[in-house]
């Protein structure tokens, strides 16, 4: 892979030894994520930047995990590893039975399409598509028929309380509503894992609690693994497990 742009927020210069993060024992289930000695470095113009420093981490199936840490500590890079968006410089990342760190782009895209749901801080809806069509984009790579796609998407929007907003464009929806559409988009494919990247960062407090209630509800109902990156301690406190990442090192809080 060619040299990648460096996100300044991920710059970490730590040379410390790895900290082993022993996983919190789950309900006896197998681990959905296994990270072993994962290091991610970026080549900046003059120096090498280490965003993740020899991270070993397990996340059991069905766990709700909050990831906290200062800006530039490596949260974003860790989420990219978990989301099959990028490969580590060294070490192994596996999701279920797939060794993500060794798979090609095409296969990674397939895993993202089937097994991983994403919720972003700024919702990231396609501005030209209606709420319903935005949800449908998640099913497009899965080769489901048009009718089934529509039915499932409508059901997903209904489950987030937007049954009356199918034909609205994102610009016609409030922030909270847009995030609901994004959650419907992430869940319509029934993923194993839901990764939420500051899901309440752009919302006011009232809406924040609504969205968190929604996410927590789905987590409980569907038994999926929920990983939330957040600055907000109020959000993090709702999680079963809190991870703290700083200078590329991860530890349980």
């Amino acid at each position: 892979m060619p040299s990648e742009p460096v996100s300044e927020s991920d710059v970490v210069m730590s040379q410390e030894q790895a900290i082993l993060n022993s996983p919190t024992p789950g309900q006896g289930a197998t681990n959905v994520y296994e990270l072993v000695n994962v290091t991610k470095t970026y080549n900046a113009t003059k120096r090498k930047v280490t965003a993740l420093d020899n991270v070993t981490l397990s996340i059991p199936n069905g766990q709700m995990v909050a990831i906290q840490g200062p800006t530039g500590g490596g949260k974003s890079t860790l989420l990219q590893m978990l989301g099959a968006l990028d490969r580590p410089t060294s070490g192994d990342v596996s999701l279920g039975s797939s060794l993500l760190s060794k798979l090609g782009d095409h296969k990674l895209a397939e895993i993202r399409a089937k097994e991983i749901g994403f919720v972003f801080q700024s919702f990231n809806l396609i501005p030209t598509l209606t709420a319903l069509e935005n949800v449908e984009t998640a099913l497009a790579p899965l080769h489901v028929s048009g009718a089934e796609r529509r039915d499932r998407s409508q059901a997903a929007l209904e489950s987030v309380g937007l049954a009356d907003r199918y034909t609205h464009l994102p610009a016609e929806l409030s922030g909270g509503q847009q995030q609901r559409v994004a959650i419907a988009r992430a869940l319509v494919k029934s993923p194993d894992v839901l990764l939420a990247d500051e899901p309440t960062g752009a919302l006011d407090e009232g809406t924040r609690d609504e969205i968190m209630d929604l996410l927590e509800g789905f987590w409980r109902e569907q038994g999926l693994t929920l990983v939330i990156v957040t600055h907000d301690s109020a959000v993090a406190r709702r999680a079963e497990r809190r991870l703290h990442i700083k200078a590329g090192k991860v530890r349980d809080a």
Partner: peptide, 15 residues
């Protein structure tokens, strides 16, 4: 960001 999002939710490069 739009294309990045689509890639993140599983759209292949070809698509």
């Amino acid at each position: 960001r739009e294309f990045g999002t689509l890639k993140a939710i599983g759209w292949s490069n070809n698509r």
